[in-house]
Amino acid sequence: MEVAIIKYNAGNIYSVVHALKRLGTDPIVTDDAETIKGADCVLFPGQGEAAKTMEYLRERHLDSLIKELAQPVLGICIGMQLMCSCSEENDATCLGIFDVPVKKFVSPARELKIPHMGWDSLSDMQTPLFKGLNTGDYVYFIHSYYVPLNEHTIAQNNYILPFSAAIHKGNFYATQFHPEKSGTIGNTILQNFLDIASQS
């Protein structure tokens, strides 16, 4: 299976490469339009700041490319946020695959620290992306902005308020947490995504 990882100015892309290699694939990290379009599935991972990252994607015409992809696509963390309509992080206009805004966490109490960082649990999981998982399974989050619950929500977490731990629409899947850093649970989610890709 051809697995493409979109190369852009975000951190932590290589941990996704390693995780996918451990699952027996040989992912290619690329910003080449034809390679990305021709892949069986595409991952759009990373950590970063929304406005600068969007600017980088636009300069390289990766913004329109990502929106038009027809194969299974998995956005991770900032990748998920960039798939939404806009972000409160420096008022970024994002890709608009999901018609949902990205909000900033506002902490009501000292003990609820921001960023939301560490292992937190999943609930209300839907779609084959979460096959084999149980409510309460832990995954690794690190973020200061969140996607509110919406019609596309396929998993939830509750930190300060219930928010979207994952969203789905058509061929697009996205997780706020980092499956590549979430131990065996994360491996299961990535394997499920590869299975979705091999069956489509």
Partner: peptide
């Protein structure tokens, strides 16, 4: 370590 471990 990065190639072998799937936690932060």
């Amino acid at each position: 370590v990065a190639a072998n471990i799937s936690i932060p």
